[in-house]
Write a protein that binds this DNA or RNA. Structure first.
Lengths: 237, 237
DNA sequence: AAGTGGTCTAGACCACTAC
DNA sequence: TAGTGGTCTAGACCACTTT
């Protein structure tokens, strides 16, 4: 390892490993060399490699399994749902279905341009769908993606319920963090039609921006939710 | 250290230290013995003590400062506000003021009894107040506390804006975790009166239960928020 | 039985804070 | 200058998984 970086050794090892993962040299699911092999490669002790790997595991970049090894983290619909989906009913996290899915390309609105940090000539892919829980419509959802990052999405015949594993598998984009802003708002005419409720009904408006590991915004999503039978849950520690 | 507990050494050290802090033997703000002194006391190595202290720091039970030492964590209005308050405006986290504060003792409702896990004969202290931001009422707040835990609160002349540092300082109760459930709802007649808005206006209803380190619920709070100029922010990683 | 990550030790040196 | 936590090493042994 080169020195004089004024940062701890394990930080430099961590960054070197993160680079291999984020660049795709090590693909999701891949087994990493063991701690001693990495220690030898970087010219540090095994304890230093361990600290770097533990930090990467805390950021969900790798998964460690005693007796098996350390693997590049792979997004599955379950793990993503558990990390990033916060709507519950009395029985726990809900798994809504989708209907009336539409996909289209459009020139971005000002908010889309800002949220996705689009280039001046960039266009967006918009996915709109109504999500149902126990056959009742509860979420009116609009998702905006940069066309530059997700070209090819339009040609798909079907859009799965959970998108983030698709982003990783088909587009090489791994969501690392989401920021959500919540407000109460009256249902618009369009939302009321899709949710089969009166115009003006209070809905929970969730604005979400999803970021990849480099901090670049990759998805903007607005969900209008009826909260008669579900609620948004948050734990603060 | 006694053995045969089938748990790692550092876990046992951590629990022993946590017990001293939670029981009050080591009060908030107190300087702990250094790592080598603790290692000698427990008959383990310094590295094991370090791992225990790092885990306690991650749970906000202690604070570590290079060159100064390790201290029992002390709640201040700032740290608590930063950890547990999620309402923002365009400029960042807001710090609402309070008005029309009322404190009273009452027999608990069924929901209060359930949320606070009250004993059959237990009563509650209710604090109601209207919270303002830039002189506009934005939150209609009701807080319920077990009278058994907070006796003496009624005699106070004033109730501060941030309560959790008061809980720790005056009642020995440290909030470790809060769980919040959010819904959109129409403003009730009472809420509309206090927030100076029409009945039925969509408000963000935040139901919060706060827990201490042992997992016991210590506070139940319902906030009805107008979200014209503020929003609830959540980051998921 | 072989290989992996998890725990634990003993000791060295560095970076920061206080006196 | 003394004392603290932070980093790093080298090595031992344990617990778990796979073959």
């Amino acid at each position: 390892m080169e020195k004089l970086d004024a940062q701890p050794l394990y930080t430099r090892v961590k960054r070197a490993l993160a680079e291999r993962i984020l660049s795709g040299i090590w693909a999701p699911g891949r087994l990493l060399p063991n701690e001693f092999q990495l220690a030898e490669e970087f010219g540090v002790s095994q304890g230093t490699v361990r600290k770097a790997l533990d930090a990467l595991a805390a950021e969900h970049l790798v998964e460690r399994h005693q007796g098996r090894g350390t693997f590049v983290a792979r997004h599955t619909s379950d793990t993503v749902h558990f990390r990033f989906f916060q709507l519950y009913d009395a029985g726990g996290r809900i798994q809504p279905d989708s209907r009336d899915v539409r996909v289209a390309v459009a020139d971005p609105s000002g908010r889309e341009r800002a949220a996705l940090a689009l280039a001046p000539e960039g266009r967006v892919i918009r996915i709109t769908r109504t999500r149902t829980h126990e056959d009742h419509p509860i979420i009116d959802e609009q998702i905006s993606l940069s066309e530059a990052l997700f070209s090819g999405l339009l040609e798909r015949e079907t859009i799965p319920n959970t998108l983030y594993d698709l982003y990783q598998t088909d587009f090489g984009i791994t969501v690392a963090r989401v920021e959500e802003n919540l407000r109460a708002a009256p249902a618009s005419e369009a939302t009321a039609r899709r949710l089969d409720c009166p115009v003006g009904t209070p809905v929970l408006a969730i604005e979400r921006v999803a970021f990849d590991y480099s901090g670049q915004p990759v998805e903007w999503r607005v969900s209008q939710c009826l909260t008669d039978s579900v609620f948004y849950h948050s734990t603060l520690k």
